[in-house]
Design a protein around this nucleic acid. Sequence first.
DNA 1: GTGGTCTAGACCACC
DNA 2: GTGGTCTAGACCACG
Lengths: 135, 135, 135, 135
Amino acid sequence: MWIPIQINENSAEPLYFQIETQLRSLIVSGQIEEGTLLPSIREFASSLKCSVITVRRVYQDLENEGLLLTKQGTGTFVARVGHSERSEYRRMVVQEAVEAAVDAGLSVQYSEEELKALFLEIIKNKYRSQAGEGS
Amino acid sequence: MWIPIQINENSAEPLYFQIETQLRSLIVSGQIEEGTLLPSIREFASSLKCSVITVRRVYQDLENEGLLLTKQGTGTFVARVGHSERSEYRRMVVQEAVEAAVDAGLSVQYSEEELKALFLEIIKNKYRSQAGEGS
Amino acid sequence: MWIPIQINENSAEPLYFQIETQLRSLIVSGQIEEGTLLPSIREFASSLKCSVITVRRVYQDLENEGLLLTKQGTGTFVARVGHSERSEYRRMVVQEAVEAAVDAGLSVQYSEEELKALFLEIIKNKYRSQAGEGS
Amino acid sequence: MWIPIQINENSAEPLYFQIETQLRSLIVSGQIEEGTLLPSIREFASSLKCSVITVRRVYQDLENEGLLLTKQGTGTFVARVGHSERSEYRRMVVQEAVEAAVDAGLSVQYSEEELKALFLEIIKNKYRSQAGEGS
DNA sequence: GTGGTCTAGACCACC
DNA sequence: GTGGTCTAGACCACG
């Protein structure tokens, strides 16, 4: 199975973190279905051109979060989690980032209006360019 | 001079980074005026209960960014930068965080409307509680 | 990999600065190729007989300038920068020194002719002895 | 007596060094005549808006170089040095800077021609703007 | 193995 | 008093 992960070599973010974040998004957004068998660690590592140790860490972390399930000798699957649980997860991922953004605004004394304006501008741009790519 | 910095011992963020981020916010938002003489590294270190090296790194990094100016034997000052430059900096600080938030929304396939709603809710709460503290 | 750095113990210039200057020259002049993996900080420190912290500072400063790229757990690489960017950097390094020299001449009221003559004499000598070493 | 010294607050160069360099240039270029009585340390310090300690160091350093002469209870004078000695001094000041510039060129593998061209360009610009100021 | 952070403490240069 | 450099060594995170 093919998993669309983009690695940015020049990013300061650690490799495992980039992979983890993207895989988590794919799962909680439903782009990878529940029960799906993920690639083996070796396979995934070779397709991502990274160390098996790195993939191992990703699988382990997501298993600890309850998003993956490893069966000895069989492989790693996307866990079956309740609908409500998944949407809660999905919300959490976004909420943290939004809160950080609002905190940043507060820290440099942006007014509520300024911050709203900036946000609406950015959201418009990003969603537009996203739509463009998809077409 | 007293500088209000909050250190979170349990955070994954390195000490120097927490201090740097907060001090940068205080400067670009104008809460510390241009030309102000900051505490000496030893003084600041003792008040923050950290090593002088950590404070030194903070001062040096912000000097590299052009926000501080240090004169040997005299002390460290908030640099006098142009108004436009500072407001640009201020915007940059917020913009990065907002972009990250929108990217997070996109990655779990939030719709534009969902994301806007979440943002407006969080901004309202945070600004309200902020106002409460200030009164 | 072997990097030719000369340290002058008796110089007033700080250690880190001597190393930084020479390494920068090697990079912008292309004597160390893009993408090259530099020695680990520990290795380099031991070969230069200095503290790991001194090497770390060098690597970090040059990374801030955009000349190096470090990946945790992997090592430090010479960044791939555009040709034009590098030649601009290369020019800058020389230009600053030449401007300082001309300023020195002006400050003691050297005439344009005197300064030119002195410069041509020195350049001839230095390039001749350089050629001698290389042969 | 009025001595034209320009202090750059934002320079990384130490205060004493800026003053020393400029005063030395004024003396060896003959812009301050031999035997001239310089301002008292206090006077000079107050006119430069710096500490007396800083001026004291400048006078001391230049006295050690043989350019100044302090008579107890009378003041500090520009020493009477031979013509050849002064011109040698003057040359030395420039020569060091020019050698540093040529070394910089060599370090990034500038060709002799490239370096000459750069030098001639800069010398032309600087002397032209200098002439402009004087007119 | 790699780099990243942080400590405690020393010594020097500047004002 | 101030900042600037450097040391030796510890512990953690990444691959």
